[in-house]
Amino acid sequence: MNRREALFSLGSMAAAGSLGSAAAAAELKGFPAQTAMSADHLPVPAKTGGGFRVLTGETEQKTVKAVFDRLIPADANGPSASEAGCLEFLDDQLAGEYGAGKALYLEGPLKPENEEAIMGAPQFLTSPRERYEAGLKALEAYAQENDGAAFHALSPDRIDEILAGLEAGEIDLGEGVNGQAFFELMLQNVREGYLADPLYGGNRGMAGWKMIGFPGARYDYRPYVDRRGEDLALAPVSLIPLD
């Protein structure tokens, strides 16, 4: 739908009276009396203790770990991605609304031929959960075909080489998998796992926040705004206090 079509359909909806029904929506006056928070205002902590729910295959887990720990390896600055809980983070996210693509429009485009040009990025009709399932399978198949070994068993240098090839769009993972976009998805998710609030399963021990000096979910920095050029040594804080 282009802008003209969008405007036209909006006009026809208004003509049909469907916009008129918005007027019947609840109207808030004054101030809300209830300040206790309702469930949809609250974060949803990662489910723990039940094992993996999406990345259930051993090979899948090892492949993700191999990729994640090359993207964020353990070094003097902090633990590796898997040590910081990024696999648990990813699995929890894939098991929930993110994995199901609840926030994504997954119906077919009206005009597939120029969809990518309009949106400026590759578009997918599959959910992140499905993209991981297909992508990890394709990555393992690529390693078996080209190296005769499992992906996770490859040397760090070889893994880096494959990842660099994916990033540059030079490696074809086959039908239905956009290798470059899959690389970007994994890079985005490992960063999220490393730097999101630990309540979501990653950033274990707030290692990610300690590494970059982020003080976490604090409400107010007024006591510190005037203290420039000083190491404030603020301890990072999770939304849900850690002991």
């Binding site: 609250l42 974060p43 902590p45 723990t48 809980g85 630990p198 850690l242």
Partner: peptide, 11 residues
């Protein structure tokens, strides 16, 4: 009948 506190995943 206030909500129970959430827990952080094991660290």
């Amino acid at each position: 009948d206030a909500r129970e506190p959430m827990a952080n995943p094991a660290q």
